[in-house]
């Protein structure tokens, strides 16, 4: 067998590996869409669950997940963007900055269940928020914070240095420069990265398991101190804890599909924003 021939075979094998991965991802998505779509209808999205989730819809879980998302955004976005502004615009190369960076890397590596334990210890028990939207949102916010900081800093650093110099040279203060000539141009990148991070939070189960999620609660929350159902937790319960798990399989698939659509929808939205703004600012 010639060298050329054996190289061709190796290339083929590497390509095979890559497309095997693609195929597996594709199959998972296909399987969930195929089985989830038939059970998905308007009533399923807008009705309350009945009989421990054996019948009815998933409205409270959708509302729960959306309110958790809103809470997470409200806390993590300003905090993350401000941190990124500090790191990109103000920070000098010193020990303190190195410590902040180490902390961010550490936060990014903390397992989600450990965030759950932390949220339980600090927000639920110590601060006495109870298992609530507030405790859950804060826990998720801690978890997505590093993602938001890293992607926002990247977006801020992508703004050409000349804009900052020109603005400062015209007598603008540092903050005026950031507000008028750095933030506006990096906003699309910041939003994109943040949505990708927050989208992942929407699908997380472990951190909310201990801090907010209700097993079965067929009503809507009244305040941020209420427990809620959440899509990922609901899917987990239906799939593993339901006495007749096999019977409610269509509902499990439909719930998985809704969760998937929500998370992938957010990611897709982020990617579309990125493409749109890439055309607007080209440097």
């Amino acid at each position: 067998m010639s060298r050329r021939r054996s190289e061709q075979i190796t290339y083929f094998l590497i390509r095979l590996v890559m497309y095997f991965i693609v195929l597996v991802i594709g199959y998972i998505l296909f399987d969930i869409v195929r089985h989830g779509l038939p059970a998905l209808n308007w009533a399923f999205l807008t009705e309350y669950p009945r009989k421990s989730g054996s019948e009815g819809g998933i409205l409270p879980a959708i509302v729960g997940t959306l309110s958790l998302l809103a809470g997470t955004i409200l806390v993590a976005l300003p905090l993350g963007i401000c941190s990124a502004i500090y790191l990109s615009e103000y920070a000098e190369q010193n020990r303190f900055t190195a410590m902040i960076r180490l902390a961010i890397i550490t936060l990014a590596g903390v397992p989600s269940i450990v965030y759950g334990l932390f949220g339980l210890g600090l927000f639920v028990l110590f601060l006495n928020f109870g298992t609530s939207i507030l405790a859950g949102s804060l826990t998720l916010a801690c978890m997505v914070l590093p993602t938001i900081i890293v992607s926002s800093e990247e977006a801020l650093r992508a703004v050409p240095h000349g804009y900052r110099d020109a603005s400062l040279a015209l007598g603008a203060t540092k903050w005026e420069t950031i507000r008028t000539n750095v933030l506006p141009y990096s906003l699309s990148g910041i939003i994109t990265g943040s949505i990708l991070g927050i989208g992942r939070a929407a699908g997380e189960t472990a951190p909310i398991l201990l801090t907010v999620a209700a097993f079965y609660l067929p009503r809507l929350p009244n305040s941020i101190f209420d427990q809620v159902m959440a899509l990922p937790y609901h899917l987990y319960i239906l799939a593993t804890q339901h006495p007749e798990a096999d019977k409610v399989l269509p509902l499990q698939y439909a719930t998985a599909l809704v969760l998937l659509l929500l998370v992938l929808g957010l990611s897709l939205g982020a990617i579309i924003i990125r493409i749109h703004f890439r055309k607007k600012y080209r440097w």
Binding site: D165, A166, L170
Partner: peptide, 12 residues
Amino acid sequence: VGMVFQKSNPFP
């Protein structure tokens, strides 16, 4: 004291 830079840098 105004300044003009080497690389033209109009804002977008």
